[in-house]
Structures are given as structure tokens and as C-alpha cells.
């Protein structure tokens, strides 16, 4: 087990190198001059520009610049922006916001997705099951951009106007946990639908398994057959999806954070791409990739807990 974790972490190194290099190359391949973007319409002083180019190694070939970047990263330095602001200062507090948002989303996803999925599986073929299928299809079909604004208007603005109570704050994080409810749900919506369907299919499959029939033949009460014998086996795909989704949600927070004006990493990423703050973009993506890798590792380790047939040698 320990060796397996070590091997997986070692395997993460080439993945991290590959992804960061890719994003590094893409960001610097974007057309336009990042220094010009700083100045807007005004002409950039050539002396200043030359100094900046020297400082940021912009005259060196891409691979060399990437080398410099890696060297700094290893020593914990994410670099500085063209404005002279350390990237790590820009990160301050922002990852927490996004992490809280993503966790809120995962909690919604777990409770609603698994709950609805189990319910549908047990009501298989009846109207409740069909209703769940229809609703989840609708949820998958609506882009976050639309559902975000609609729910913000309906549950945030209109409900507040109608009742006078601010159930769901529409922007910012000044209301603590409550601030994350609506954005968390919006972010989770598509995933909820997927997880619902995954849970439904998975449980239905398990309910047909021979060992479930055995449990019934052993005279086990229905609740035990479902809750112990069937559910334990259906959990594997659900946990996989939930774990991998945490990473996806953090990346997907870009739109949600922009709609609900949450000062998180997604909003910063959007802003930084816009402002050509390349070190910030690469830094954020690097951290996201790291989170993704760790989340996947945790999921893989959970497999062994859930399914004894999987062993790490």
C-alpha cells in the first residue's frame, strides 16, 4: 500500500510536467504582446519593454523559460506578475473560496445525486423513476451559464423581493456558508444529474446480481439486502465519480464564480487570462492539476477499501 502510494505520486511527476508545459506553451502562444496588454492603448516605452523582457526572460526560447519557471516552482516561488505582484499573494484566500464552493457542490451532489438515484432504482419503471430520468435529462441539458443566472434571479432576487428574507445571497462571500448555497447548487447541477443516473444504473445492476439473490435466499430482511449487500457493491462507481468530480468542479468554478462574483480561483483565472497575466494562469492551472491528481489518488485508494478484490502490490 505504501509503495503503491509512492509509485502513484512518482507517476504524478511526469503528468504534472506535461500538463504545466502544455499550459505554459499555450498561454505564451496566445497572439498579442502581454506587455502591450498592460499598457492598453498607449505606446510602451521601448527601454522599459526591453528591461521587462530581460527580467521575465521573454527573449529566451520557450523551453528555457519553462526551465526557469520550473526552477522557481520547486523552491515554492510561483513567480511575479508583470505588475510586480508575487503570484502567491494573488492566490491568497482565493483557493479557500473555490475549495469551499467545490465542497458545497460535492455535498449537494452526494446527497441529492445518490439519494435520487437510489430512489429511482427502487422505483424502477414506475412514474417516480421516469420523473427522475426526465428531470436529470433537463438538468444535463441546461448550461451552467443559463441555470446560474435563472436561479440567481428566481431564488436570489425574486424570492427576496417577495418574502423580504434573503434566503440565498446572490453575490460575494460575506454571508458565510449561506453565500455558497446557491452557487454550490448551480455548480453541482450537471454533476447531480450524472451521479443520479450513475447511481440508479449501478444499483439496478447490483440488484440483479446473484449475491443479492443469495442474501434474499438467506432470509435477510429487505432493508439489509439493499443497505448492506447491494449498496456496498454499487458504491464503487459512485465514489469514483464523486472523487474525480471534485477536481472537475474546481476547474468548472470559472463560470459560477463569475456569475455570483465569488472571489475564488476561477474568477481570478478568467481575469488573468483576460489580462495576460501568464504566470498567474500557469500557476493556477498547476495547482488545479495537483488537486486533480491527489483527488484521483484518494479515489484509487478508496477502491481497495470498498472492493477487497483490488489489491495494490
Amino acid at each position: 500500500m505504501g509503495r503503491y502510494v509512492l509509485r502513484r505520486l512518482l507517476q504524478a511527476i511526469p503528468v504534472l510536467l506535461g500538463t504545466t508545459f502544455l499550459i505554459f506553451a499555450i498561454v505564451y502562444a496566445l497572439p498579442g504582446d502581454p506587455l502591450q496588454a498592460l499598457a492598453g492603448e498607449k505606446r510602451v516605452d521601448p527601454v522599459f519593454a526591453a528591461a521587462m523582457r530581460e527580467q521575465f526572460h521573454l527573449n529566451e526560447p520557450l523551453i528555457v523559460r519553462y526551465g526557469y519557471y520550473l526552477r522557481d516552482i520547486v523552491s515554492g516561488d510561483f513567480g511575479t506578475t508583470f505588475r510586480g505582484l508575487p503570484v502567491s499573494t494573488i492566490f491568497e484566500g482565493k483557493f479557500q473560496v473555490t475549495l469551499k464552493l467545490a465542497l458545497t457542490a460535492v455535498i449537494f451532489e452526494g446527497i441529492i445525486g445518490i439519494g435520487l438515484g437510489l430512489w429511482a432504482a427502487l422505483r424502477r419503471g414506475r412514474w417516480e423513476d421516469k420523473a427522475v430520468l426526465a428531470v436529470t435529462l433537463l438538468m444535463v441539458s441546461i448550461p451552467t451559464l443559463v441555470s446560474g443566472f435563472v436561479l440567481q434571479l428566481m431564488l436570489g432576487v425574486k424570492l427576496k423581493l417577495a418574502t423580504g428574507i434573503d434566503f440565498f445571497p446572490v453575490a460575494g462571500v460575506q454571508d458565510g456558508v449561506r453565500s455558497y448555497l446557491l452557487p454550490g447548487f448551480v455548480l453541482a447541477m450537471v454533476s447531480i444529474a450524472y451521479l443520479t443516473r450513475l447511481t440508479r444504473t449501478s444499483l439496478m445492476e447490483t440488484l440483479r446480481a446473484d449475491y443479492v439473490r443469495t442474501a434474499i435466499a438467506k432470509g435477510m430482511p429487505r432493508r439489509r439486502v439493499l443497505g448492506r449487500h447491494a449498496l456496498r457493491n454499487s458504491l464503487i462507481p459512485m465514489v469514483t465519480y464523486l472523487g474525480a468530480d471534485l477536481g472537475t468542479l474546481m476547474g468548472g468554478a470559472v463560470i459560477t464564480e463569475t456569475i455570483f462574483n465569488l472571489p475564488g480561483i476561477g474568477q481570478q483565472l478568467f481575469l488573468s487570462v483576460y489580462l495576460r497575466e501568464n504566470p498567474v494562469v500557469v500557476g493556477i492551472v498547476t495547482v488545479l492539476v495537483l488537486i486533480y491528481i491527489v483527488a484521483n489518488l484518494v479515489v484509487d485508494l478508496l477502491y481497495a477499501v470498498l472492493d477487497p478484490r483490488i489489491r495494490y502490490e
Binding site: D210, Y211, R213, T214, A217, G219, R232, N233, L306, P308
Partner: peptide, 20 residues
């Protein structure tokens, strides 16, 4: 009665036993 007074042995024990 089921399992206690009348019990059953199934064909393929690999799939009839719970793997987890």
C-alpha cells in the same frame, strides 16, 4: 422459513457469494 428451515445452494458460488 426462508434460509432457516428451507435453504438453497446456488450454482456458481463465485457470483452467488458477495465479493466485498
Amino acid at each position: 422459513i426462508r434460509g432457516q428451515r428451507i435453504a438453497m445452494v446456488f450454482q456458481d458460488a463465485l457470483s452467488a457469494l458477495n465479493p466485498v
